[in-house]
Nucleic acid binder design. Structure first.
Lengths: 210, 210
DNA sequence: AAAAGAAAGTTAAAAAATTAACAATCTATA
DNA sequence: TATAGATTGTTAATTTTTTAACTTTCTTTT
């Protein structure tokens, strides 16, 4: 799988959506799809679909289209979803609880196998059947569970500290749900997801359009 | 507030982050900040900060910087956060439950005041103190509660139907947590947040870099 | 077997976003 | 009061991303 040259971030997000449509199509017995069909289902243009795919190779047949199952498999491979990933969740508050129970992760190959918190009242208890460990055990447990990804679901004030601990434990990819910027090493992939900010995109546009 | 010309989507997201830093700075007693400081704290370049702000006006003083409190207020106004917004949550499953309890919304001016579901076992019960209504009552309750924004936290298969109902109820902004594209009218702002896809950005980059 | 239609892959053009450079202006200091 | 330093707002250049147009190839039909 080539990642020699820079791919637009948005392309990755669209590939994810394409793959979901392709799975659905295949399950419905639609064995061949066109860029047009993919585009319609995912809300983009056919040219965009072809361009996105062209970054990675030639997956279709001219004059015909793409084989749904085949393209699905290719995209999943491109996204790194050819295998399962073990994920650590830090923060057993409301958000952490929700994420631990969210079915959507498992469906896409992500297994949250350990949860960490600093609150003595939470440690030892379970969330969605997964035991909550003290944050200090992160390194040890991460090794045992083969953790490669981490989710930060703690208050903004604790986010950087948690990120540091995750990096110390050798975790290479981090999703940060805290509404704050955190600094990571060069070899660590970081992505921030600010739920409130999502609503703010809406209010920005709606503010004075009434 | 001008929105005559197109602002990069990413700018809105950064403004949100700037505002959080500014609030923090002000609370710490830092009354003046430079684009450099904002940039450092939020992980962008100073030029980017100034450019982002320049879309909306002149908020600083050359040779000096920005007044933290003042700039904070301006940005909040720009984002439409000069007032509170009433939000309806559709879907009382794991994700819905989490979102209903998430403190981060209220802090930024969003109040989830009613929750909807189709599951008879859930209707009538409460989540985070908020009653769960049958989806059919959406229109009625939305009117009573002055709902302007909607959050879709239902399975992908039901997302479009829910979106249609939200639009019917006059809701103008929608966050869709279902991993599927949905179609909305022209005068409705839509934003998709795919939690699993966030992890996929990481795995895409990590896949073969071990 | 040729022609028409469909659809991918590719190249070029256009648009959008970011980065960098610079001119204007404020504050502090000599 | 002039000068140096700081820092904004703005303009220009660069880079990135999207859109459109075109070429190739496959399938079907006449």
């Amino acid at each position: 799988m080539f990642k020699k040259f820079k791919i637009p971030d948005a392309t990755i997000g669209r590939l994810s959506l394409y793959s979901r449509y392709l799975k659905e199509a295949e399950e419905k017995g639609i064995s061949t799809v066109s860029s047009q069909q993919i585009a319609k289902a995912t809300g983009v243009t056919p040219a965009q679909v072809r361009k996105d795919l062209a970054y990675f190779g030639e997956f279709g047949t001219r004059g015909v289209g793409y084989n749904s199952k085949e393209l699905y498999n290719y995209i999943m491979k491109i996204l790194g979803l050819g295998r399962r990933w073990q994920v650590a969740l830090v923060g057993a508050g409301n958000l952490g609880k929700a994420l631990s129970q969210y079915k959507g992760f498992s469906e896409r190959g992500f297994d949250i196998t350990c949860i960490f918190d600093t609150d003595p009242n939470k440690i030892g208890k379970k969330l969605a059947g997964i035991e909550i460990y003290p944050l200090d055990l992160l390194g040890e447990k991460a090794r045992i569970h083969n953790i490669e990804l981490g989710i930060i679901a703690v208050p903004a004030s604790a986010a950087q500290e948690v990120a540091d601990k995750l990096m110390e434990a050798g975790i290479r990819g981090i999703i940060n749900f805290a509404p704050v910027n955190i600094n990571t090493g060069e070899n660590v992939m970081l992505r921030r997801v600010d739920l409130a900010a999502q609503l703010e995109y809406l209010t920005y546009y709606l503010e004075d359009t009434r």
